[in-house]
Structure formats: C-alpha cells, structure tokens
Design a protein around this nucleic acid. Structure first.
Lengths: 182, 182
DNA sequence: ACAGGCATGTAAATAGTTACATGATTCG
DNA sequence: CGAATCATGTAACTATTTACATGCCTGT
C-alpha cells in the first residue's frame, strides 16, 4: 500500500473520534508538530487518498448550514495503523540552523559565536513554554502516551537550553584569558 | 540574494581549504549530516549557482588525468557567510518516527508500546557510536566549534537513550500490577 | 456590519532524495 | 583484470510549504 508517515499521522488522528481535515490540522499543530508537522496541502489530498483506499471513511457532518466532512477509521485502517506501529521506526531527521551556524562559528570572533548559543537557548526556552502550555490539555485525556511524549519534549528543551548555557560559559572561559591583560 | 541554508553549508565547507563537490559531500556526511544533510542533487547545482553569483570560484585541479574542479570562497562569499552567521537561527525541525509511533501507542497493548522505546533507544545508541567514531578526526583540527557540536551530539544521543530507558521502566511499572496476580 | 474562526481545497514553488549514467584512476 | 573509489552531473520523483480562493457561521 506504501503509505507515507504523514498518512499514518492522519490515521492515528482519526482513530477514536471522527475528525475533519481542519480539526486534524489543529490537532497536529497542538501535539505532534514538534516531531512531525503536516500542512493543509498534505492533509486534504491524503484524506482523499486514504478514503479511496478504504482506510478511512468520510461522513458528511455539517455544523448548521456549513458543510463539513468528518473521517472515521475503518477496520482496515486500524489494521494498517497497527502494522505500522509494530514496524521499527526508521526516520530520524533534524535540521538545526543553530548547530549549523555554531559548526561554522570559527568564521566569527568568539563574542559573536556566543551570540549563536544565546539565540539557540532563547529558542529552546520559548519552545519549552509552548509545550508547558499544552500540558494541561494532555493531562485531561486518559491516553497516557501523548502526555509521555509531551513531557519528553519538556525535558529535551530543558536539557538543550542547559547545554547552550554550559557551552556559552565554556566559550567565555576559553576566551577570557586573552582579555585579562587589557 | 536569498540563499538556502544548504548554500551556506557549501559556503562554510569551502572556507579555508578549496574543495570539490565530491569532497563537500563526503565532509557533510562526516560532520553536519546529523543536523543538516545534503545530497549530490543539491550540492552540484548549488555549486554552479554560487559560482555564478560570485560567492565561490571554481578552479580546475585534476588529480592525474581525472578532471576535477575545486571551489574556493571569494571575499563576497566570506561576507555573505558571516552576514548569515550573524542572523539569529530560525529553522529547527525534527522528524522522529519513533516519537510519532509512541504518540499513537495506545492502539497497541503495553508490551508492544515498550518495543517502540527499545527500538528508539537502540537507534540512539547506534548514532552515538557513529559520532564517537568521528571524534578523533574532529580532535585533530584546531577549529574548536565542530568538536563542540560533535560532543553536543554525543551528549544528546546519550540523554535520549537514557530517557527511553527511563520511560520503558516507567511503562513496565505501570503495567506490572495487572500481571502480579497471575 | 464586520472581524475572526471554521472549513475545504488547490496551484505553484521549493526542497530534497534516489537512482542512474559516465568515465577515470588506484589498488590488490 | 576487477572492484572500489574518485568525480561530475542530471532526471524523475516525492515531499512539503506557502499562499491564495471561496464561503459560511458566530459574536460583538
């Protein structure tokens, strides 16, 4: 069947409650976005494909006079999702402009290299605050896994911010002796 | 000028020593790959573009009778690179199939959810070994930043592997009482 | 009346991977 | 000689983002 990982995001999101494309997008933005994002440009065509493959089923469910289609997972879809979950994960990708800049920081004087670390730390702290704001919502549900993943994100952003701080201190220590004589 | 981040990878890689496209690819694979990858399909067209923009300069430098072009950064290129390094980093993306599967793990029985964490841990440990193998090479150079970034990668993979271990133990503890009676 | 959110969708552009073609050189 | 590596390049494909078009409904 050869589905993309993004297809499984959708499959997972319509498991349990039926949801519209709009709702799926909002859910992804509020949960998996940090480790797996998806845009409307992916979601709507994918809903059509999954529907044609019989893995989900669209049901018209207008809110008042506003037309709206919610999708439910089928038995086949449920099986497909489980089969994927049992497969060992492969994709692990990171694109971190901060680390990339730090990698080339020798092109700059040390005090400007430190600025990169400061910006990275600020970024991670901002992400941490975003995640913290999501925690109450995740705590309400009785599915423990999203909360577990969210708390992993909290720990990770904290660890990363702390690493930036440590590296900043290290760089400052290394370049300090050159300034002592002035 | 509107360059992609991948263009700056190339710019950074030809700073200092002149290098061929082939060498750049090998370097990226041996260093930045973990936080910024690049394929031949990106590198060769980008070398042409950067050359046309006057940010790098290609010089024929055959090895024996085998034709080969090495690229050097120009003064303009150096300025462009520095200007980019001074800009606060923006892109931070992660695509982690493991976390995604864990997020939806409620669709599986607990013992299979634990399998996801085990696979994730094995992955991080393998990445850690890869990084460790790169350490001696990075230690030789007198540019401290690639080594700093590499050691950050080592710490990160260790932290992540440890987190997986902790979460595995937590899941086992949570599901254990149900089995005690048997 | 109008702003903002709900809702669906697509076109165009950009980014990136994979696979292949081509050919020289080096090493065992 | 044959395999591996050096070296350059591109075509086709897949993935993904951005931006826009459309229109209804709700609250102020």
């Amino acid at each position: 069947m050869e589905l993309s990982a993004t297809a499984y995001v959708i499959l997972g999101m319509v498991r349990g409650e039926p949801r519209s494309g709009y709702e799926i997008k909002a859910l992804v933005d509020g949960t998996t976005r940090f480790f797996w994002a998806a845009s409307y440009g992916q979601i709507y065509p994918e809903l059509k494909r999954l529907s044609e493959a019989g893995l989900i089923e669209g049901v018209d469910s207008p809110t008042g006079g506003r037309k709206r289609t919610v999708y439910t997972i089928t038995a086949d879809g449920e099986e497909e999702l489980k089969a994927w979950l049992r497969q060992p994960p492969v994709t692990f990708e990171m694109r971190e402009e901060g680390l990339l800049k730090l990698f080339f920081a020798n092109a700059l004087p040390p005090d400007e290299a430190v600025e990169i670390l400061r910006a990275m730390r600020a970024h991670r702290l901002a992400a941490n605050r975003e995640l913290r704001a999501m925690e109450p919502t995740a705590e309400e549900k009785d599915d423990p896994y999203p909360l577990l993943v969210l708390r992993g994100g909290l720990e990770f952003t904290e660890w990363f911010a702390e690493w930036c701080e440590r590296m900043e201190a290290q760089l400052l220590k290394e370049t300090a002796p050159e300034r002592r004589s002035s």
